[in-house]
């Protein structure tokens, strides 16, 4: 693959006190692909995610996004650069409506702030309108347009997951990181989520997918990185990873629902 690298995780080590959560993890994410990040529980998947989105600062190593070093940057700046994420345990703004939730995401690229909002200057008004239009479009895209004025906490579980994706998409990311988006889904819901993820990729957004469900990962990803105990133990196409003895030992070897 000679595509352009979008995200480079370069020898990243992360220690909490004496615990090594990530140990010299290396991988590259190319534009336009869907990369799966898998591993057994406690392998460091979410930690890796958090390091990428600026929640944790790597002890060693670098994370580069579109060629720029991002570790140590403010979290909202990383989002503005085009990396958006969802959360393993849903973290919507529970009392805001679906529309407002997504609008918060869309606001990431607003240029006007308090002074022009105070006076409702035309430029601000324009941006508000654009933000709202984008929010509606994104809600439509993930398929929950009909929930637009409902308060987030009242949405059904599946729609809450979709709303999180919508909110992340509204920040107009080039890279979307999904943290176990299918957790708690039944097979039908999983299938339609799979479709949504493909649709997102087809719209030009690169996707990093953390997932437990092997079938989902195998079905949708272009490449897979496998972590175990904070170390990368394998990388390659789904077929390669499936046949990798290390992976089988570490992950597939244990009885799994998949």
């Amino acid at each position: 693959m000679d595509r352009k690298p979008l995200l480079e995780v370069d020898n990243v080590t992360l220690r909490f006190g004496g615990v090594v959560a990530l140990d010299q993890v290396n991988f590259t994410l190319y534009e336009g692909e869907i990369l799966g990040l898998i591993g057994p529980n406690g392998a460091g998947k979410t930690t890796c995610f958090n390091a990428m989105t600026g929640v944790y600062l790597p002890t060693e190593g670098q994370i580069r996004f579109r060629g720029e070093q991002i570790s140590g940057r403010k979290r909202f700046r990383i989002t503005k650069m085009g990396m958006a994420r969802t959360f393993q345990n849903i973290r919507l703004f529970p009392e805001m409506t679906a529309l407002e939730n997504v609008q918060v995401g869309a606001d990431a690229h607003h240029r006007t702030s308090v002074p022009s909002a105070l006076l409702r200057l035309p430029r601000h008004w324009q941006e508000e309108k654009q933000g709202r239009a984008l929010a509606e479009e994104v809600l439509d895209f993930v398929g929950i347009r009909h929930r637009i004025h409902e308060v987030a906490r009242n949405l059904p579980y599946g729609d809450q997951r979709r709303l999180e994706i919508a909110r992340a998409l509204a920040t107009r990311p080039t890279l979307l990181c999904l943290d176990e988006p299918a957790a708690g889904f039944n097979p039908a819901e999983k299938a339609s989520l799979l479709e949504l993820i493909r649709k997102i990729r087809d719209s030009g957004v690169t996707v990093l997918l953390i997932e437990h469900d092997m079938r989902l990962v195998m079905g949708v990803t272009d490449r897979i990185v496998v972590l175990e105990f904070g170390k990368k133990i394998a990388e390659g196409s789904p077929a390669e990873v499936r046949d990798n003895p290390k992976v089988i030992a570490a992950y597939l070897g244990v009885p799994d629902a998949a």
């Binding site: 909202f76 609008q103 918060v104 606001d107 909002a117 508000e128 909110r167």
Partner: peptide, 24 residues
């Protein structure tokens, strides 16, 4: 406006707001 949305977002989940691009 976006300002009010940002405030409410901060009130409800400050970390999530920051990760959604709100300069909290």
């Amino acid at each position: 406006s976006r300002v009010g949305r940002a405030w409410v977002a901060i009130r409800e989940d400050e970390d999530a707001a920051e990760l959604m691009g709100v300069p909290t």
